[in-house]
Design a protein around this nucleic acid. Structure first.
Lengths: 348, 348
DNA sequence: TTGAAAGCGGTACCAG
DNA sequence: CTGGTACCGCTTTCAA
């Protein structure tokens, strides 16, 4: 079928070992032999079989990535950043989209493990630690991205969600909002962190935290739009309706804006809205949406670097936590006529 | 390190062959032996090494996917559809994003080949056939998606781009437009097909084709917005400016709408705009965007099915061409006051 | 019903 | 510098 080292060894009356050494640039091969081997390799269009090589070296030169939703631009861009960073090191990405389903995630982790990927990068949708103990037992390095998991001393690359929540909320307050609400996300690190940041910002400005002002939204892109609108409707129904809302993510914010407009109110003058994620089409929305930029490309690149270093060092214990900067990108949805501050804010 | 068949064979005083047979459900194993082996497998948490298995069977249970841009929702959703369809068959996806760069695409094809994927699915950004001859020489089945390549009798799954262009243009005409322009895409099958469909629709309605009315846009998402706006500005500068524009894809259409509004004109009353792709956030744009739905999920599923059947049959020659239906989804960007037809149109 | 031997396509080690 | 031998973890074949 395929051309193998044996073929070219036979043709040249040398051993496969010699061929192997040429391929791996092992120095102890004469110039002349190397030349002949290389020539024959080209003639036969030979390419090594990585599966075979993996069997003896234990390295597959592949890395697994599991994300909750490829359709979400944050994860798509992250995958892009990862893929590009890995390509230059001759690694390839095995990607799976778990659809926010823990069962699928567990299944796919197993799928990656039996393929002996060199590392796993995962934005987990689980809150249990069990799957990860499994990975650890198999001795393959893994790192969490975007969402961290309490009780897991694993490497992590993501943003400081508390800072993100704080910045977003502060941005609303600086824009003149005094009754600031939050449409929160799921009870994972991102959702909880942003909620915490929201609280901190209120406190820092001597504004009272009011539980009526925190409403839960479901996630999952298409679902998120609707969910954001529903949550906003609840907020609008309050006797003292909020004048500013920090939304868990951009799709939720888009749905929320829709609800405000449908209620006959104006954005941002009646209700200012800010999201999180800074999706690339935010500028072209009905009301251009302010958002916290999460630097997904950067996260991807950093994650790649960290994964490669873990693979090299074989020391899985050094659980580095890498936090990338976040910043607020202000657009029309928070640009009120009276504005104390509408410039770009950087995380401290 | 890892638990192997040898370990469990030793523990049970049986041969690895026996263990192997149990794992593969080979019938010639006694009930009792099978029970014992299975038990030990569970105790040791044994999982087969697919790399090793691949070496002897020649099957890796993995499929490669190359797309020009993961960030584009069309491809992200397609990847999702593929991934889900393959998971149930125990396959996994190796994904690469070529960034519309033919060199990267060629590199990644090679990367997939040396990893011995069982099939390659590719939305190619090349117009040369060479890379594909390469794949053919290595005897691994591949199929094209979205974009077909002239002179290549390979399997294909995508939409009928001519029909897409025809439907979109007809939709504008039915909405009352008489000076219909086209912002076209690159000279690949999708771009050329939609252009051809545009021409056909004009002819079918006795409208003259006017080369001034066809302007080229660059692709690549973020780039596309700007490019769409530039193209639209050219059109608006014409002495007889168009009253309807069919855009190569949705990002281009979004940029185009932006240009119209910035020029102080109205969408759709002065200029109606329709795109292609039906991105899921179209409904939330400044002007909700009409578009041709490309059924990316369906394309992904069909591609998965076709790829699996090629792998099974080992008969790469049967180059099936699967065309999925397209339909127009009408939104505000084409809903003029005077409308002859604003319902959903299906491809014939 | 079970298993010994050979081999998939490579690499590691060490002797010549 | 070159290559024989063993082996990576698993499947295939065939004899017992």
């Amino acid at each position: 079928m395929s051309v193998t080292m044996k073929d070219i060894a036979r043709d040249l009356h040398v051993s496969v070992v010699t061929v192997s050494k040429v391929i791996r640039n092992n120095p102890d091969i004469s110039k002349e032999t190397r030349r002949r081997v290389l020539k024959r390799i080209r003639e036969l269009d030979y390419h090594p079989n990585l599966a075979a090589r993996a069997l003896v070296t234990g390295k597959t030169y592949s890395i697994g990535l599991i994300v909750p939703d490829l359709l979400h631009p944050f994860f798509a861009e992250l995958a892009n950043g990862l893929s590009n960073a890995l390509r230059s090191k001759n690694y390839i990405l095995l990607i799976s989209s778990s659809s926010e389903d823990p069962d699928i995630e567990r299944h796919d982790i197993e799928s990656l493990l039996i393929r002996r990927v060199d590392a796993i990068i995962i934005a987990s949708t689980q809150n249990s630690v069990e799957s990860f103990r499994h990975i650890e037992k198999r001795q393959i390095p893994y790192i969490l991205i975007d969402r961290s998991i309490p009780g897991l001393a694993a490497g992590f690359v993501g943003v400081d969600d508390v800072a993100a929540g704080r910045l977003a909320t502060q941005h609303l307050i600086s824009a003149g909002c005094r009754r600031v609400a939050h449409i929160r996300g799921p009870a994972v690190s991102t959702g909880l962190g942003r909620l915490e940041g929201y609280s901190q910002a209120l406190a820092a400005n001597n504004l009272a935290f009011c539980s009526d002002y925190v409403v839960q939204a479901r996630t999952g892109d298409v679902e998120a739009y609707r969910s954001g609108a529903e949550a906003m409707n609840k907020l609008l129904a309050l006797k003292r309706r909020p004048d500013g809302v920090f939304c868990y993510n951009d799709p939720v914010a888009i749905g929320a804006i829709d609800a405000v407009l449908n209620a006959g109110l104006r954005v941002p003058d009646d209700v200012a809205v800010i999201g999180c994620g800074n999706l690339h089409y935010n500028a072209w929305l009905r009301v251009p949406l302010s958002s916290v930029d999460q630097r997904s490309l950067t996260i991807g690149e950093r994650a790649a670097k960290l994964a490669l270093s873990l693979i090299k060092s074989k020391n899985m214990n050094k659980s580095k936590r890498i936090m990338v900067d976040v910043k607020v990108v202000a657009r029309a949805s928070t640009q009120r006529e009276v504005t104390w501050d509408n410039k770009v804010l950087r995380a401290g």
